[in-house]
């Protein structure tokens, strides 16, 4: 009798576990602030037994979470570094990147700033601290205030690679936790400049600056990102330990589905097709 009760309790517990699947997703703020929570809500509506734990604290934390085994999906707006790959291999983790959407890093200024376009060279010089006053790039005199992401952000390192020839940011630059914070600070500061993902360039109080590429002024858009003419375009990733399985595989499949990609497009990302 006692054995029967124990067996019944164990079976009940097992059933409960099977129904209360929890998907832990960590990493990029670019993906984790809007896109993935929205996808998760839609996914939960179709799969009521699934719950999500989403922590958007930067791509570095997402890649580390896969290496440490503390998340099933690591969101990242940058590729894993060789040292991260090496650390993963040392722990028997097979880092597998899957592109889930494209993004363009938009250069934003305060909406009252008269500067409408900048060359790639000027952008590099501004963020590296070589140019410190708006008057040097056709704006009214005033010290340029630079807002960047913090060092755990994939956008932070992506922007250095894509726009700054891998140079370091100006010492005076202010590090922000996320895209929304950068957009909010630039909206408050008429001398501000920063960068945000495509999903944030229409935030209130700011405007995107066109990038002058060989005489052609290019704004970040779905078209310029997809045809790869916009210079600061990049893929965004889900990292998993090998091919994903279980609920992680299903959520990845949902993300890549037409429905998932439509959500990505609606939020401001560029869908894969």
């Amino acid at each position: 009798m006692k054995k029967s009760i124990l067996f019944a309790l164990a079976a009940l517990a097992a059933t409960g576990v099977a129904h209360a699947q929890k998907l832990v997703i960590k990493g990029s703020d670019t993906l984790g602030a809007k896109l993935v929570p929205t996808l998760a809500e839609e996914y939960k509506a179709k799969h009521p037994g699934v719950s999500f734990e989403i922590a958007a604290e930067g791509s570095t934390t997402g890649i580390s979470a896969i290496i440490d085994g503390t998340a099933q999906i690591g969101m990242s707006s940058r590729r894993a570094k060789p040292t991260e790959m090496s650390a993963a291999q040392a722990k028997g983790v097979n880092m597998k990147p899957t592109i889930v959407a494209y993004d363009g890093i938009g250069i934003i200024v305060n909406e009252k700033c008269p500067v409408a376009k900048l060359t790639k060279r000027q952008i590099e010089q501004i963020f590296a601290g070589d140019i410190t006053d708006w008057s040097a790039v056709g704006g009214p005199a005033g010290p340029i205030s630079i807002y960047t992401r913090n060092t755990s952000s994939g956008t932070y390192s992506d922007f250095k690679d894509l726009a700054m020839n891998k140079r370091d940011y100006a010492p005076s630059s202010q590090k922000m936790a996320g895209n929304e914070q950068i957009a909010a600070e630039v909206a408050k500061n008429v001398n501000g400049i920063g960068y945000v993902g495509l999903a944030y360039i229409t935030d209130p109080g700011i405007k995107a600056v066109a990038v002058d590429v060989e005489g052609v002024a290019l704004l970040p858009s779905k078209k310029t990102v997809l045809d790869k003419t916009y210079p600061y375009a990049r893929p965004t990733f889900y990292y998993t330990n090998g091919e994903p399985t279980g609920e992680a595989a299903k959520f990845l499949e949902f993300t890549l589905s037409d429905e998932g990609q439509a959500i990505a497009s609606k939020i401001g990302f560029v869908p894969l097709k």
Partner: peptide, 28 residues
């Protein structure tokens, strides 16, 4: 893009696993 990404990841893994430089974590 995805195929390129798979190749890129495989090359980086090879670089990380089979070269001394891939294991160095130098300051940016």
């Amino acid at each position: 893009d995805q195929e390129a990404e798979d190749i890129r990841a495989a090359l980086v893994k090879d670089f990380a696993a089979n070269t001394s430089a891939g294991k160095l974590n130098l300051s940016p």
